[in-house]
């Protein structure tokens, strides 16, 4: 009798997993870089290609690193949110213009406003690969010691800012 119940038991466990699975996103890939130092780069600035910026220069600061591009439609979705965030001034936002023509990127910033303290230009996408970028926009939160603390793939939402990013920023800044 009991052994005939085994299939039912296995099936119930399976249904449980499938039920949880309905609320998971199989397309999202978590970054293994969380808790690890942000990959180094030395890239020219969008505002002034003669100058370069590296994560080293931002040691001692908690900062958001936002990967975007002028060709990326969903980056427009989060643009207003980023502008609002930079106006509040709670955390500096640095941008990385990923696989893009600097001219196009400047046009976008001129038209929609510039939320970034600075934007670095990653024309060939090498620095992006180092960060494990796979779908723009992506946003990284980096602490004073240069460690990546959080990553969000896809456009930011108010909910994610309020529930995840801003509390973490406050914690890391103190």
């Amino acid at each position: 009798m009991k052994r005939f119940l085994i299939p039912l038991g296995i099936f119930i466990v399976l249904v449980g997993f499938l039920g949880i699975g309905l609320n998971l996103n199989p397309r999202e890939v978590p970054s293994p870089l969380i808790g690890k130092p942000a990959p180094d780069f030395k890239l020219p600035l969008l505002s002034d290609p003669a100058r370069q910026l590296s994560p080293e220069d931002l040691r001692g600061k908690v900062w958001l690193f936002n990967v975007w591009a002028s060709w990326c439609a969903s980056c427009r979705q989060e643009h207003d949110l980023l502008l609002e965030l930079s106006r509040q001034g709670s955390v500096p936002i640095y941008g990385m213009d990923y696989k893009d023509q600097p001219g196009d990127a400047q046009t976008v910033l001129a038209r929609y406003g510039n939320p970034y303290v600075e934007t670095v230009v990653d024309i060939d996408g090498r620095a992006g690969i180092n960060f494990g970028v796979y779908g723009v926009p992506e946003t990284y939160l980096i602490d004073k010691g240069g460690i990546i603390r959080y990553k969000h793939t896809g456009p930011l939402t108010q909910e994610i800012l309020d529930r995840k990013i801003l509390p973490l920023v406050k914690e890391l800044q103190s």
Partner: peptide, 14 residues
């Protein structure tokens, strides 16, 4: 569907 079938199976198969 599957749950009730397997339950019926467990009841009757023995």
């Amino acid at each position: 569907v599957i749950g009730s079938s397997l339950f019926l199976f467990a009841m009757r198969a023995s």
